[in-house]
């Protein structure tokens, strides 16, 4: 009964980012990573944040996660300000960050054990459900170092889905994988997004990846990190990363990106 409740998709959350500014102090002075960034993400939306390195997109993701606090501005989730990490917003990092002293099952269980309303047996059932969802139920008792890079990220995905968050935050999770594995995971993540109804914020510097996954693609420019432009991707799902229509979107975004990176001063002058 409790397990059935636990496995039900919770309604996804709405995010509101309002005037978020973040500075970093380095030896050579203060660096503005994010400069008055504002936008909104609707419940159940799949949004990709794209930009070159240094545009603050990962910092913004950390702020939404509650791992870092902005210097000014605020993030609201369903109207409530985000001040610390929470199980309603799970993060997938670029490295799988799996715990090597636990097996696959132990890793997926880690977050579940911290949920107060589940006993041991129920935790195991829930973990098994998510391992099945990512296609790794046969590897429940494998050691982490025995898995390939793609399998590790699948375990990380199962681990972040297991506590049943309303928002899934993904920080370039596929950047270190080979192309073939990545394409497989594009399919998986679209399927899981449709099945589990999550709000997903996906950070990447790969324009094609963003066009393949996102309903919306938000373009950032660096120094300081700002929101520049937004693209709506109106393609049917599941999308194939190699399709011609997708390539058209990708090249439009790339052109826009190039404009901001090559001539940032001209753009700033126009404002």
């Amino acid at each position: 009964m409790s397990v059935q409740d636990e496995l039900k998709s919770v309604p996804p959350a709405k995010l509101f980012i309002d005037g978020v500014t973040k500075d970093f102090t380095t030896r050579s002075g203060t660096l503005r990573a994010l400069d008055h960034v504002s936008f909104q993400i609707n419940e159940g939306d799949f949004v990709c944040l794209v930009g070159p390195s240094g545009c603050g997109k990962s910092t913004l993701l950390n702020i939404i996660a509650g791992l870092e606090l902005p210097d000014s501005g605020l993030t609201l989730m369903n109207g409530k300000p985000v001040t610390k990490p929470g199980r309603d917003r799970m993060v997938m990092f670029q490295e799988p960050a799996l715990f090597p002293w636990l097996d696959v099952m132990g890793n997926v269980l880690f977050g579940l054990r911290l949920k107060p309303n589940l006993n041991k047996k129920e935790c195991c059932e829930v973990a098994q459900f998510y391992l099945r969802l990512v296609g790794l139920e046969e590897f429940a008792h494998s050691n982490i170092h025995e898995l390939s890079g793609g399998m590790k990220q699948r375990v990380a995905l199962a681990r972040s889905l297991a506590p049943n968050p309303r928002v899934l935050l993904m920080d370039e999770p596929f950047a270190a994988l080979d192309a073939l594995t990545r394409e497989q995971l594009y399919g998986d993540i679209q399927r899981i997004w449709a099945e589990r109804a999550k709000t997903i914020v996906f950070v990447t510097h790969n324009v094609r990846e963003a066009a393949c996954l996102g309903n919306r693609v938000i373009l950032f420019s660096p120094h300081p990190g700002r929101v520049r432009e937004e693209f709506q991707i109106d393609l049917p799902r599941p999308r194939d990363i190699n399709s011609v229509e997708l390539a058209k979107y990708a090249s439009r975004i790339t052109r826009a990106l190039r404009g901001y990176v090559d001539a940032p001063d001209a753009e700033l002058g126009a404002e």
């Binding site: 996660a65 990490p85 799970m90 960050a97 715990f99 911290l114 506590p163």
Partner: peptide
């Protein structure tokens, strides 16, 4: 990153 991952899981 281990401690960060653990913090996000509550």
């Amino acid at each position: 990153i281990f401690a960060r991952a653990a913090r996000t899981m509550g």
